[in-house]
Amino acid sequence: MESVSEPAVARSCVPSIVSGGMRAVLTAEDRVPIDAAHLPGSTPGGLAIVVAHGFTGALERPAVRRAAEIFAGTAGVGGVVTFSFRGHGRSGGRSTVGDREVLDLDAAVRWARRLGHPAVASVGFSMGGSVVLRHAGRKPAHEGAHVDAVVSVSAPARWYYRGTAPMRRVHWAITQPVGRMVSRGLLHTRIHDKDWDPVPVAPVEAVRSIAPTPLLVVHGDRDGYFPLDHPLSLADAAGGAAELWIEPGFGHAENAAAPDLLRRIAGWTAERARPAGAPD
């Protein structure tokens, strides 16, 4: 699926999403403008967490803002970068539903490094969870876009899954003209109308190449989109290199993530993420 750029929606001089934050328009490798924000953390000089939201999310959505604020308040976190994937929110382009979104994450990670953070971790939810896995699994990583730890929350293990009613609705929204119209009008998500060509590497294949970068896979036992065989497949494919949390009572992605879970995720990244070459 090739991405088609649209006129930039983001602007560099707009109010910050939170007090003390910074807003910017980043440029993905294929020239799509990406709306991004940086929130200072509780530990100056600490790592940055880059948040990759789920499908139909955006950096200004309440669940993403809540996650960013909780991450920023965790000891060891020096800042949080949120951004809107292409086709979402104020970013340009159209969504390729997890394909070229890797380039958007690339731009956000590079920005975090330019801001001076000594280490950068990516935390992705649902579609964003698949993107952080594919991004971390690329070898070699693009210059300045490598991450020092990865957390994938509520992510699919494989593409084209239609085994649950919510996922059948998602596929309708993506593949049908009326569905794309509804997504644009009601969900403010602009979706590309072309099929993937070529089909991107599936998350279950990407995880095989992430080690030795620390990897955490998080999934809820009440996830209505992807059943537990998805996180189990991801952990198995990682060959023991991934830590797996199956969370009792947790539903799906950032909208369902409780503050305690978000704090534990941030604490895990602060403990595990170290710059390449740093002592253990």
Results as ranks from 00 to 15, higher is better:
4 V>I: 14
7 P>S: 13
13 C>G: 10
16 S>L: 01
18 V>S: 14
18 V>D: 14
20 G>T: 11
21 G>T: 04
24 A>V: 15
25 V>W: 03
27 T>P: 00
29 E>L: 09
29 E>T: 14
29 E>F: 01
30 D>I: 10
34 I>Q: 00
34 I>Y: 01
35 D>W: 01
35 D>G: 01
37 A>W: 15
39 L>H: 13
39 L>W: 14
43 T>R: 10
44 P>E: 05
45 G>R: 05
47 L>H: 08
48 A>Y: 04
48 A>N: 02
49 I>M: 08
50 V>P: 05
50 V>A: 04
50 V>M: 04
51 V>T: 05
53 H>M: 12
55 F>P: 02
55 F>G: 07
58 A>S: 15
58 A>W: 07
61 R>I: 01
61 R>F: 06
69 E>D: 09
71 F>N: 02
72 A>G: 10
73 G>S: 15
74 T>I: 11
76 G>M: 11
76 G>K: 12
77 V>W: 13
79 G>Y: 12
81 V>D: 05
83 F>N: 01
86 R>E: 03
86 R>S: 05
86 R>D: 04
89 G>S: 05
90 R>V: 03
90 R>M: 12
91 S>G: 09
92 G>V: 04
92 G>F: 08
93 G>F: 03
93 G>L: 09
94 R>K: 13
95 S>C: 15
97 V>K: 02
98 G>R: 02
104 D>Q: 09
104 D>V: 07
105 L>W: 03
109 V>Y: 02
109 V>C: 06
111 W>R: 03
118 P>W: 04
119 A>T: 11
122 S>K: 01
123 V>I: 15
124 G>P: 08
125 F>S: 06
131 V>P: 10
133 L>K: 08
134 R>M: 10
139 K>E: 07
141 A>C: 07
144 G>P: 07
150 V>W: 03
156 P>Y: 06
161 Y>Q: 05
162 R>P: 00
165 A>N: 00
166 P>G: 01
168 R>H: 01
170 V>H: 10
172 W>D: 01
176 Q>W: 12
177 P>A: 06
178 V>M: 10
178 V>P: 00
179 G>D: 08
179 G>W: 11
182 V>D: 08
182 V>T: 12
183 S>N: 13
184 R>S: 13
187 L>E: 00
188 H>I: 00
188 H>E: 06
189 T>F: 01
190 R>A: 08
190 R>T: 14
191 I>P: 04
191 I>K: 04
192 H>Q: 14
193 D>V: 00
193 D>S: 14
195 D>A: 15
197 D>W: 05
199 V>Y: 01
201 V>N: 00
203 P>N: 11
208 R>W: 09
212 P>E: 06
213 T>E: 04
214 P>H: 09
214 P>G: 10
221 D>T: 03
222 R>H: 12
226 F>L: 13
227 P>K: 02
230 H>I: 06
231 P>S: 04
234 L>V: 06
238 A>E: 04
238 A>S: 13
240 G>W: 09
241 A>K: 14
243 E>P: 04
245 W>L: 04
254 E>I: 09
255 N>H: 10
257 A>V: 03
259 P>S: 02
263 R>P: 03
267 G>H: 07
267 G>N: 06
269 T>E: 03
272 R>N: 11
274 R>T: 12
274 R>P: 07
